[in-house]
Design a protein around this nucleic acid. Structure first.
Length: 109
DNA sequence: AACATGACAAGTT
DNA sequence: AAACTTGCCATGT
C-alpha cells in the first residue's frame, strides 16, 4: 500500500459523510484543493474496496448519478442509499440538492 | 519503462 | 447554450 496523501484525505472525508447525505467527487476534490483531480477521488474509492468502512455509495458524481455502481461490490448501491432515506430513480438521486453534503460548507470554518 | 485508461469536473470554443 | 478539450494522480498492461 502506497498510502498517498490524497487517498488518505479522501477516505477521511468520505468517512465523515453523515448518514442520509451524499457528496460528489468534485466537492471532495475541491475541499482538498485538488478540484481538477476529481478522477483520483473516484479512483481512491475503487481502491477503497479494501476498506469496507468507506461509504463509497454516498459518493456520486456531480450529477447525482451512481456512475460507479457497477464497480460496487457487495450490496446494491441504490438499495444502500434508499436505506438511508435517499430517493433515487434509475441510478440518479432525485433530491440530490437536498441530500448533498458539501464538506466545504460543513467542514470549512 | 512507457502508454493508456479511469467512480469526474471545470474551462474554452 | 452545447460540445470539445484539458487537468489531475494512480493503477494496469
Amino acid at each position: 500500500m502506497k498510502k498517498s496523501n490524497f487517498f488518505e484525505d479522501v477516505y477521511d472525508v468520505v468517512r465523515l459523510i453523515p448518514k442520509g447525505r451524499v457528496t460528489s467527487y468534485g466537492a471532495i476534490a475541491r475541499y482538498l484543493g485538488i478540484t481538477k483531480s476529481a478522477r483520483v477521488v473516484g479512483w481512491a474509492m475503487k481502491s477503497s474496496h479494501n476498506d469496507k468502512s468507506i461509504p463509497a455509495h454516498r459518493v456520486v458524481n456531480r450529477n447525482g448519478i451512481l456512475t460507479g455502481k457497477h464497480n460496487f461490490i457487495g450490496k446494491k448501491m441504490d438499495k444502500l442509499l434508499k436505506e438511508e432515506g435517499i430517493q433515487m430513480k434509475n441510478n440518479q438521486i432525485i433530491n440530490f440538492n437536498e441530500v448533498f453534503w458539501n464538506p466545504i460548507n460543513e467542514l470549512e470554518l
